[in-house]
């Protein structure tokens, strides 16, 4: 879309008919962009300045909701919880995805089946994934207690619970990440690898010196989108732990949801959503810059 516009601007001589055609063709996606992107952002920006419980009239509070966040320990803690869990999940997800992609990029018998199986958890709704793992990990009546005959309380442990939730997220996402890496690896011309082999480079050396530099854009993309997506983590946590034990897995999106739809404090929720969106936007800008410098 933007490429077309740029091309048109350069030619400088697009006919009136061309411009009309462009407008018609762009209309549906523009409408979508406005309705599902710009309007909601505008609503959030407006809500940030309001105190509203959906029952009375909204009242103007200026920046009050944002300044109140500075004193909100619960929000700060949920940011840290999300960051901590992200530091476990994102690197693991990327490394594991890369390793699996290296294994799958050169087809061997059964690799198609394995690849399909890898994708299955990603196809399942996150809520289903959460419920499934809660059943497996449940201290009473769960799969592990039934197999071992012991009460094993993994999700009840404040240290283990965030780690386990992160691992479940990795389990659910790794197939998707692998897809990107496989596509990137397969696109590398065979000659590079053959040349490297002639030079006597081993498998690891080839990966490090030939393949990784060539798939760097994909690596950045996967890394950053994984981070952005992790900050939006919600349904898996709801189903697995509900944010507990204590506040050990109280991720930001869950915190925002509770403020908005359990406590009906829409202004505070919008302020938190704005901070969350800001973090995600910064990550996207970083990605954009990295990718641009690659070209």
């Amino acid at each position: 879309m933007t490429a077309n516009q740029a091309a048109m601007r350069r030619s400088g001589s697009a006919s009136r008919a061309d411009r009309r055609a462009a407008a018609i063709l762009l209309a549906p996606s523009t409408a979508g962009l406005v309705a599902f992107f710009l309007v909601p952002i505008g609503v959030v920006l407006w809500l940030v300045t309001q105190s509203w419980d959906l029952l009375g009239e909204p009242t103007w509070v200026g920046l009050g909701n944002l300044t109140a966040l500075l004193r909100d320990e619960g929000f700060g803690r949920s940011l840290l919880v999300t960051l901590g869990m992200g530091l476990i999940a994102v690197p693991l997800q990327v490394l594991l995805g890369l390793a699996l992609a290296v294994a799958l990029a050169r087809p061997v018998p059964g690799s198609a089946l394995f690849g399909a199986a890898l994708l299955l958890p990603w196809l399942a709704a996150p809520l289903v994934v959460g419920v499934l793992w809660r059943w497996i990990l449940s201290p009473v009546g769960g799969v592990i207690p039934e197999l071992t005959g012991r009460t094993v309380d993994l999700l009840g442990d404040p240290v283990l619970a965030p780690v386990l939730v992160s691992l479940v997220v990795v389990w659910s996402n790794v197939g998707y990440v692998t897809l990107f890496f496989v596509a990137a690896l397969v696109a590398i011309p065979r000659e590079y690898e053959e040349t490297a082999m002639l030079e006597g480079a081993g498998r690891l050396r080839r990966l490090w010196s030939v393949e990784l530099p060539l798939i760097r854009p994909t690596l950045f993309f996967v890394l950053i989108t994984s981070c952005v997506s992790f900050f939006g983590l919600f349904d898996t946590v709801v189903a697995l732990t509900g944010g507990g034990p204590g506040a050990a897995t109280d991720v930001v999106a869950l915190h925002v949801y509770r403020a908005a739809f359990e406590e009906f404090d829409l202004g505070r929720a919008a302020a938190m959503a704005l901070v969350l969106g800001g973090i995600q936007a910064v990550l996207l800008v970083v990605q954009w810059r990295l990718l641009r410098s690659e070209r």
């Binding site: 309007v39 909601p40 609503v43 709704a125 996150p126 809520l127 996402n173 998707y176 996967v222 989108t225 994984s226 952005v228 997506s229 939006g232 919600f234 349904d235 709801v238 999106a253 925002v256 949801y257 908005a260 739809f261 829409l266």
Partner: peptide, 16 residues
Amino acid sequence: MTVRRAAGAASVLALA
């Protein structure tokens, strides 16, 4: 990657 927040998204849509 998709940001997946089915329940939250549903509520947000309802609000919108």
